[in-house]
């Protein structure tokens, strides 16, 4: 096959894989949480059923809804799919992964956030505005922390491209402990929880008006729009976990996309790692209580602090 066509197929395959696996990951997390909290677990494939149900329904739109409101789900879903294509979760040998670096990725996430917030304010209901404001507050605190986490890895490997980071870790000679990456890892988990509306910051399973952030923004959506928004938020969680893998646990990612055997191995490794990450996420969500909204800045400034400490420790110790 033509190498360009092959690269294209590989790239497309990875994006489709992410889109297909994201609901499964969310279903797995929900199942683990239910087990840990000794409730009877929902079926693993429940998110797919929810999507099918929503896609079948007729969309109801508010009379004041502008085109922005209708268009936002497609934009958000599109940016999340594009980010999934950029992140080297199965192989580093991707055309898009070489083109866009991790800072562009953070920009893509910001685009999606702006569109969700604008769409939430579009209808003019108080809940949407409330959710949008809270989301922007969390976002402006989480973004610098995320960038600092990424800089930790970039400083180690001298590049802002995720494939280089993966290759640097996989090709490293001997065993090297990096205290700075340990700091960055903790900070990354905190940012992940905050950005994906998980428990210390937001409870994904509640519609309690005083506490919700993400759900408040989606209240006006129905049917296919809601399905796309939900799918995009699951994809965001998937993307974040995959960024975590590329930075901290890149084992198994194929360095060359040409042969099928390493690709298959990488796929298996990815599924295994996702299962572990989902279980860990469920444990974190079970053992921690939701923070008051006013404590969220504290939580995220702690994440920022940890990431900066990682940078400083790297500069001091030189490892």
């Amino acid at each position: 096959m033509n190498p360009h066509a092959y690269a294209f197929v590989l790239q497309l395959g990875e994006a489709v894989l992410a889109v297909a696996l994201a609901p499964l990951l969310v279903g797995w997390v929900a199942q683990c949480r239910a087990w840990l909290q000794s409730r009877s677990a929902p079926p693993l494939l429940q998110p797919y059923r929810t999507l099918r149900k929503l896609f079948r329904k007729d969309a109801a739109l508010a009379t004041h809804a502008s085109p922005l409101f209708r268009g936002a789900p497609y934009v958000v879903f599109g940016t999340m799919t594009l980010s999934a294509a950029i992140i080297p979760s199965v192989t580093v040998d991707l055309p898009l992964a070489q083109v866009a670096d991790a800072i562009a990725l953070v920009g893509l996430f910001a685009t999606a956030r702006v569109f969700i917030a604008l769409a939430a304010m579009d209808i003019g209901t108080p809940f949407g505005t409330l959710g949008a404001r809270r989301e922007m507050m969390i976002g402006f605190l989480a973004e610098p922390a995320l960038l600092m986490v990424l800089f930790n890895a970039f400083l180690l490997f001298g590049s802002t491209a995720l494939p280089t980071v993966v290759e640097g870790t996989l090709r490293a000679e001997g065993f090297a402990l990096h205290p700075s990456l340990a700091f960055a890892g903790v900070a990354f988990v905190m940012v992940l929880l905050a950005e994906n509306a998980r428990i210390p910051i937001d409870n994904p399973a509640t519609h309690l008006e005083l506490t919700m952030i993400h759900e408040a923004m989606l209240l006006e959506y129905s049917a296919r729009h809601l399905a796309l928004m939900e799918w995009a938020s699951w994809l965001k969680l998937f993307n974040y976990i995959c960024i975590g893998f590329t930075l901290f646990a890149p084992w198994g990612i194929a360095l060359h996309g040409a042969e099928p055997a390493p690709l298959l191995l990488a796929l298996l490794a990815l599924v295994a790692k996702l299962a572990c990450a989902g279980a860990v996420l469920a444990v974190i969500e079970t053992v921690s209580a939701k923070l008051r909204l006013f404590r969220a800045p504290e939580f995220l400034s702690a994440a920022f602090l940890l990431a900066v400490l990682g940078l400083l420790v790297h500069l001091l110790l030189g490892t």
Partner: peptide
């Protein structure tokens, strides 16, 4: 040792 020192700081 560096990891332990970093842990102390944390």
């Amino acid at each position: 040792l560096h990891v332990l020192a970093a842990g102390l700081l944390l």
